[in-house]
Amino acid sequence: MSAAEPILEARGLVKRYGRVVALDGADFDLYRGEILAVIGDNGAGKSTLIKILTGAETADEGEIRLEGRPVHFRSPLEARAAGIETVYQSLALSPALGVVDNLFLGRELVVEGWLGRWLRKLDYPRMRRLAREALDSLGLTTIQNIDQAVETLSGGQRQGVAIARAAAFGSKVIVMDEPTAALGVKESRRVLDLVLDVKRRGLPVVLISHNMPQVFEIADRIHIHRLGRRIAVVRPQECSMADAVAIMTGAIPPPAAAAA
């Protein structure tokens, strides 16, 4: 069965910055249709791991496989082209541009025929329609004017636009870096619902977060990172929040069954 095979996996990733070893033989597995949370103390190397998986950095050693095939991303563009979309903590939205422009930034649609081929004329009617569909499919109905500048939206709406962009273009994996870090309680709730919506649509999600209650609420599995490697993978039903934090900080050894 295909669910038994990880959609995205990494083995023995090593990354050194000078004499600092950020990743020391790290493994990673993401299965189809799941939300995998990645937690770890500051400096544990989880952001380096994510950067390597999304093409922002390249590993010194180790291999990455997407759907079983080895991949070597040299830039975020290559990871994107392979179907891995990232929602950055900074959101990577252009504040003065409108919602439609942002959704299609870097992969704009041009009209068919000579106008598109020779004059590169943007197909705004088609982009508006697809943008509306992308927002509606995630229930982002509070954004009424899809031409309004992103900077005039609330924090939660901006996060929604960034997630909608990833969900619209990500064909295989969506990576979200601290999607609720800058939001209030109510808006965090909306964003978590969006993450669950994305999962429901069949896309696996990698969620990096510091917020343990949120992680335990929505993750199917939790990847615990410590000292540059994956120290354990636990299921939220089988592990308490306190134990997960203790494993993460080294206060207790990882359970033998969960050790990867």
Partner: peptide, 18 residues
Amino acid sequence: RHVYAVGDDPEAARLSGI
């Protein structure tokens, strides 16, 4: 559109694939 995006926030533009 890329001209605007680059002037607005170059890092966001880069991450968007520009």
